[in-house]
Design a protein around this nucleic acid. Structure first.
Lengths: 234, 234
DNA sequence: TGTAAATTGTAACATCTGCTACAGACACTC
DNA sequence: GAGTGTCTGTAGCAGATGTTACAATTTACA
């Protein structure tokens, strides 16, 4: 099945092989269903730094990420920014559309050039009603997101920064890492400032903690890529 | 509809009005469906301190809490305990059964005498396939859990304990609080040690932070019940 | 009621972290 | 290669937090 996304993306964006037509969520759909869905999906091409949606926007759309990484962040009452999550090609963003609140509680920014497929809430509900198995798959996806967030909460509860940082790195590696002979490699660069947002710590404290982790052998560097040698993939 | 739970619970447990037969998740089911479901549900009566399930147990059952509070906690690699969540009557626990992992990643302990209704994964899947609308409701529930966990992550990212504690208290109050003329009242006692687990801070630091919050008027006490006067219910 | 256990409050001190400032390293552009 | 901006590393200080110890208070239960 040729994919409309490919034409839209051009050569700039390295697309995930996962497409709405072949994503596991939609397996077992009838060919004409896929065609209809694929046609309806609202594609968006975004460049690095652009927002897919902003905190406070009406939440009535959910997106499948076709290529690139997207960060979810939130601005707290006191004005500080907090990065909540990083999602990659093949993941969904905007699952908040299902909940009672009608506004996105977070903002989604592209870390690279990105292509997304969007679905409206009503489209989705109709699909689930017609194909209950899709509903079960969504339930599974959301359930895994809950597990991951629960881990995240566990990471943040460590009271000293070094442990907190290490646990956050492990979580990131588990979700976005790739195996290599030396350990799990995190595939994209994270600045100390990013990690500061992820751990809720000051940038300088991250630098201190990184040095400590490096000295104790818990992390390695391969160029600018971070490696966790002791971590095992789940 | 008289409920089997009532007979089992006896007079010890104050039951939630929510029952499997009338829980909003199962609205629109046929009467005989409800009857079958209600019959199949595996009820458990537990006393304070007992475990509903333990971290590492096979995760193939999910529970509706009929009465009492249940805490979810996790033992980390380094042996420290972390309290992840508190759930109340009407909530579900064990939604991990949906995800790929076959083991519960957390333990569930009863804070008071408790009655639960359990469903197996296969029971549930059959139900969702037959009644897609139930699937949509589950999706909504899980999605709200995700929002709540996201808030939780936001709370923990505050770098000073006073703010972190206040945000955690607000989250707890939003989920388990009741309105009163003076503000939102948290309905059950939380020890400083509990709050320490919830915020990832030392017990003594909680005492210090509580005093500061009390002095600044952000929290009040009515006996042992905690009141948040400035918080508005969502 | 009386006693034991759990919870809360206080203090002192060592350590950790936030904060600011600045210098070097690196990437990118012109 | 110079210029610009971003990222990383280092230092010092003030304030926050962890840690330990012990007393005061409340709760649980015989």
């Amino acid at each position: 099945m040729t994919c409309l996304c490919q034409q839209l993306a051009g050569d700039d964006i390295e697309l995930s092989p996962v497409c709405i037509g072949n994503h596991w969520i939609f397996k077992n759909l009838e060919p004409d269903e896929i065609k209809a869905l694929s046609h309806d999906a609202m594609r968006k091409k975004l460049t690095k730094g652009q927002a897919l949606f902003l905190q406070g926007d009406p939440a009535d759309e959910m997106f499948l990420i076709k290529g690139g990484h997207i960060k979810l962040s939130k601005v707290l009452e006191d004005g500080t920014e907090l990065m909540l999550d990083i999602r990659k090609a093949g993941d969904f963003v905007g699952e908040n559309m299902f909940s009672e609140e009608s506004l996105y509680p977070v903002s989604a920014f592209c870390l690279e050039d990105t292509l997304t497929c969007g679905f409206s809430r009503s489209q989705f509900e109709a699909l689930v009603l017609q194909y209950p198995r899709v509903g079960l798959r969504i339930i599974k996806t959301l359930s895994e997101r809950i597990s991951s967030l629960t881990d995240r909460v566990g990471s943040l509860a460590a009271s000293n920064i070094e442990d907190r940082l290490y646990r956050v790195l492990c979580n990131v590696a588990k979700e976005h890492g790739a195996k290599s002979p030396q350990g799990i490699v995190i595939q994209f660069p994270l600045t100390h400032e990013d990690l500061g947002f992820l751990t809720g710590a000051h940038r300088v404290s991250i630098t201190r903690a990184m040095k400590a982790l490096k000295d104790s052998g818990k992390i390695l560097f391969q160029g600018r890529r971070l490696i966790l040698p002791t971590l095992k993939m789940a």
